[in-house]
């Protein structure tokens, strides 16, 4: 059997475009993140999903699919009352201001999931839980009273601040930070930071449209520390 140039041209187009079309119809064609954390490599829990790889782009619903914990429970302990299934973790940092070294963000969710599931997790130092979450873990028998004492507690008043504080008061008393949860890499460039400075703080990024927080999470850099460094660099 002989093939000519025309045959190859047709084969190339049909196989590539046809294959993409079929895979799309089968739900296999995905050009965005799959929202599945990597598995733990070794030890007693090898093969289990790694809570440390939960990303800020995940929703509580994504976590429910991978870990034995419901989105409703996560909503309850992180005070997310409306539609917790579709709530993205990165919004936590927008909702709650950081409190000292602690920050109610993705790392807190990782920490809670790890404590709830009993999976190993190395703390970064910025995790904190609301008292309601700690009580929940105790009630479910996931932690002892002694262990509960060691968990950093987030002041629940920050929820009240978020929910009740009049906007005018916040504007008057609070100096708006330059780097926030919704700050993109492009925003950092706009603030006058060089690419080298940005990479040295948050690590490599894929595009300027990425959220700084996502880049930090992806590169396992503490966002709370990074944003302070970036703020200092921007204010130079």
């Amino acid at each position: 059997m002989k093939l000519n140039q025309k045959s190859i041209a047709i084969l190339v187009v049909v196989i590539l475009f046809g294959g993409v079309f079929v895979s799309d119809a089968l739900g296999l064609w995905k050009t965005e993140s799959s929202k599945v954390p990597v598995k733990i490599q070794s030890g007693e829990f090898a093969g289990e999903a790694d809570p440390a790889d939960i990303r800020g782009s995940y929703t509580f619903g994504d976590i429910e699919k991978v870990f034995p914990i419901t989105a409703e429970t996560l909503g309850e302990v992180f005070w997310v009352t409306e539609n917790p299934e579709s709530f993205q973790l990165k919004r936590l940092e927008e909702m709650y201001p950081s409190e000292g070294e602690f920050e109610m963000g993705t790392s807190s969710v990782r920490y809670f999931v790890a404590r709830y599931t009993g999976l190993p997790y190395e703390q970064t130092g910025e995790e904190g839980l609301f008292p309601v979450a700690i009580e929940f873990l105790k009630r479910e028998g996931k932690i002892s009273e002694e262990e509960a004492q060691t968990i950093p507690v987030m002041n629940p008043e920050i929820i009240l601040q978020y929910e009740d504080a009049p906007e005018e008061t916040v504007v008057e008393e609070h100096v708006e930070p330059l780097v926030k949860g919704n700050t993109t890499v492009a925003d950092l460039f706009a603030l006058g930071l060089s690419e080298e400075e940005i990479i040295s703080v948050i690590g490599e990024f894929e595009s300027k449209g990425e959220l700084v927080r996502d880049v930090c999470n992806g590169n396992e850099v503490a966002f709370s520390a990074a944003k302070l460094t970036l703020q200092e660099l921007a204010e130079k």
């Binding site: 294959g19 993409v20 296999l28 995905k30 050009t31 799959s34 990597v38 598995k39 790889d53």
Partner: peptide, 19 residues
């Protein structure tokens, strides 16, 4: 690990298979 490396998605695996 059942996971993709950063920045790579399932579409790359599909294209790899087709090519």
């Amino acid at each position: 690990d059942g996971a993709m490396i950063k920045k790579i998605h399932e579409s790359s695996l599909v294209l790899m298979g087709l090519v």
